[in-house]
Design a binder for these strands. Structure first.
Length: 446
DNA sequence: TTTGAGCGG
């Protein structure tokens, strides 16, 4: 796989799929021991070719190492070779972990292609793990969990560049013997996700949706009854007795419920593909919705970090279109909004989001202090995430939750298809200004 | 037994 990277590098392509020109020459070096210095990194990496620059990142005020740094080469081949040869080299006794520098965190955060391995023989180290799994695709990051002495804890992680490689690795290696130990290889799940996975496995009550309108309790009883004793069955209906096309089947026995889900989920009845799964309690459903929403908010916030401008001191006469006009000369505007109070009067503030931080930065420089209509504009980068969060919490109590029918509730723009369902009773409120990028117009309270 | 953390000038 090092060859693939080197080849891509020679051709000036970015193996990670981005467009950044530095991606092939700039390395991220992580898992640094706290006392590792710039010059140590330089000495090590300069053995692979001319190093252009190197730095260990430090906390601005305390100057303490943040445990990672960067090494830049002028030659992509040198960078590729350094990644291949120097990865997991101990520095101050701790193996460093090298990746191509990739500033956009979306791939890392998405967790796509990330797998977990357990029951690893203690003799298998980072390198051995890497070698074993690199047969299945390009690896972005790989490590064995270790204790403070560097001893293997018997499990590890491999993040592939793509999901297909991860699937192949799972398929081929799960249950295989590695150094005489049978390893488990599966998708990586965060602790929270894993707990809900487990809780999914034991339940009596089954939820079924996408029923045809004609499907009755008797039909459900008949279909589900094949799997075991049913204690109750219900098709949910509106006031007129018309089916809402979903229902619940409660089994006496948890295994029967699980079998029914396995067998019936995705099956077609009357031309309708049923969804059959564990019936969630309201609190579980809300918890899941909230979790997914927060993940999306985080992604949105990250994405717009640096590309999103906060504007103040706007003349009241300026509307969204006019704001956009003012800023469009600096780049491609992905969204633009003047904040207004409930009666529609401009708050004199707004947001302009560009597609790149560079455009935003230029716009900031050119537009801050510029006279527009009658007043000098105040232009700043939209608040950092941490500040937003703190202020968000302060304002949380002041937001009045609004219940909306699913038919009028706005779609959250950042939701992927199949995200939290709007058919649920969700609470939406107006986003507090200066908190949330304009793309995300509503704040969910649950 | 064991389900991370991580991107600047």
């Amino acid at each position: 796989m090092a060859q693939v990277q080197a080849q891509a590098a020679v051709q000036g392509q970015n193996v990670n799929g981005g467009a950044n020109q530095f991606v092939t020459t700039s390395l991220y070096v992580g898992d640094l021991e706290a006392n590792v210095t710039d010059s140590q990194l330089y000495d090590l990496f300069n053995q692979m070719g001319q190093v252009v620059s190197v730095r260990v990142c430090r906390d601005l005020s305390t100057r303490r190492s943040l445990g990672y740094g960067y090494v830049n080469y002028s030659s992509p081949q040198d960078a590729a070779r350094a990644l291949d040869v120097l990865n997991f080299t101990p520095v101050n006794g701790k193996p460093i972990r090298i990746m191509y520098s990739h500033r956009d965190p979306s791939l890392r955060k998405s967790g796509a292609g990330n797998i977990f391995i357990k029951n690893l023989d203690k003799a298998i180290d980072h390198k051995a793990l890497h070698d074993t799994f690199s047969a299945f695709g390009n690896i972005l990051s790989c490590k064995v969990a270790t204790d403070l002495n560097g001893q293997s804890k018997g499990y590890g992680f491999v993040q592939f560049e793509n999901e297909e490689s991860a699937q192949k690795a799972i398929e081929k290696l799960n249950g295989m013997l590695l150094n005489d130990k049978q390893v488990y290889v599966g998708p990586f799940l965060r602790k929270q996700e894993r707990e809900t996975e487990i809780s999914k496995n034991k339940f009596n009550n089954v939820y079924v949706k996408n029923l045809s309108e004609a499907t009755s309790e008797e039909d459900l009883q008949k279909t589900f009854g094949e799997f075991g004793t049913i204690t109750s069955v219900a098709v949910m209906r509106d006031a007129d007795g018309k089916s809402k096309c979903f229902g619940f089947v409660n089994f006496e026995n948890v295994d029967d419920a699980a079998n029914a889900v396995d067998a019936l989920n995705g099956k077609k009845f009357d031309d309708k593909e049923w969804y059959v799964g564990k019936a969630q309690r309201k609190s579980e459903r809300e918890h899941e919705l909230k979790y997914r929403f927060e993940q999306n908010m985080k992604e949105a916030a990250d994405k717009f970090q640096g590309a999103n401008l906060y504007i103040k001191n706007l003349d009241d006469s300026i509307e969204d279109d006019k704001l956009k006009q003012l800023f469009s000369q600096f780049g491609s505007i992905t969204s633009c909004k003047v904040m207004r109070d409930p009666s529609g009067i401009s708050r004199g503030s707004g947001f302009v989001a560009f597609s790149t931080p560079e455009e935003a930065s230029r716009a900031l420089q050119e537009m801050n202090g510029k006279m527009v209509v009658s007043k000098p504009l105040y232009v700043a980068l939209a608040q950092r995430k941490e500040d937003r969060r703190a202020r968000l919490q302060a304002q949380f109590s002041q937001m009045r939750p609004v219940t909306m029918a699913s038919s009028v509730a706005p779609r959250l723009p950042m939701y992927p298809p199949g995200g939290p369902g709007l058919g649920q009773q969700l609470f939406y409120g107006q986003a507090p200004p200066a908190m949330i990028p304009p793309q995300v117009s509503f704040y969910l309270l649950i």
